[in-house]
Design a protein around this nucleic acid. Sequence first.
DNA 1: GAGCAAGATGCGAAAGATATTCAGTTTTCC
DNA 2: GGAAAACTGAATATCTTTCGCATCTTGCTC
Lengths: 138, 138
Amino acid sequence: MESQQIKQAGLKVTAPRVKILKILENCGKRHLSAEDVYKELLSQQEEIGLATVYRVLTQFESAGLVCRRHFEGGQSVFELNHGDHHDHLVCIKCGKIVEFVDSTIENRQARIASEHNFRIEDHSLVVYGICSECQKKA
Amino acid sequence: MESQQIKQAGLKVTAPRVKILKILENCGKRHLSAEDVYKELLSQQEEIGLATVYRVLTQFESAGLVCRRHFEGGQSVFELNHGDHHDHLVCIKCGKIVEFVDSTIENRQARIASEHNFRIEDHSLVVYGICSECQKKA
DNA sequence: GAGCAAGATGCGAAAGATATTCAGTTTTCC
DNA sequence: GGAAAACTGAATATCTTTCGCATCTTGCTC
């Protein structure tokens, strides 16, 4: 149940939060912008302001429920945090996003960071390209 | 001479362009936001508008003279393009940026992209962490 | 070097994303 | 059931980036 996750995050269980979490879980797409979530709410006849969407997503982020990503293009996208880290392959034509994990890359990153005496907190690897369908179309 | 580079890029040689390019070359830091460049111009008593800074940087980007990066935090940073691709290690405390290149990572990326039938156009790898100095301070 | 067209510039205003304020409402906890 | 604390929507503010447009420059020609 969504309300459990929200409660465990130390947040009060309110209608907007539950609905937003539901959307993140059920809307099919893994990556949604604040705007996407807002539009989805509107299409469900929900009376939830954009400001609340941002607030809730930010709170979810602090609580570790979702991750925020800044891809190129100004807008942030949010995705549910399933605990596993992964990187992204983004199609610059159609916006399709593929997730991947590669331990070789993760290891090299750790190595490089330690060579520079950095303690890694996070990282973001995004590969931009053109997916097979868009290659055909072009 | 800066004016050569600008001319070769197919752009008219104008005072703002030369000055901005000089700043990128000489200001010491490799990564500047549009705001940074603008402030630097102001401190040099130059009458150059912020809009022009953005326009010029965007043109330089199209011309391949500089690269624009979107790190976390809303603002874009620009850096001179020396032809070589590289990735970034960013200190989330002090903002220090270290550049690195790792062919193992590059290769894995290419492999992953081809496994998904993507044609790579670009990529961005940013590792966020805490640098040695900031670790001491904390 | 004057003349001209194409292209640049500066400024203010606008756009887009996100954050904040505020007053009223809802949840939680006892 | 009620008070305190936390939450909400709307409007507003902010920040970065872009646009519109009148004016000025540059690069080329003669």
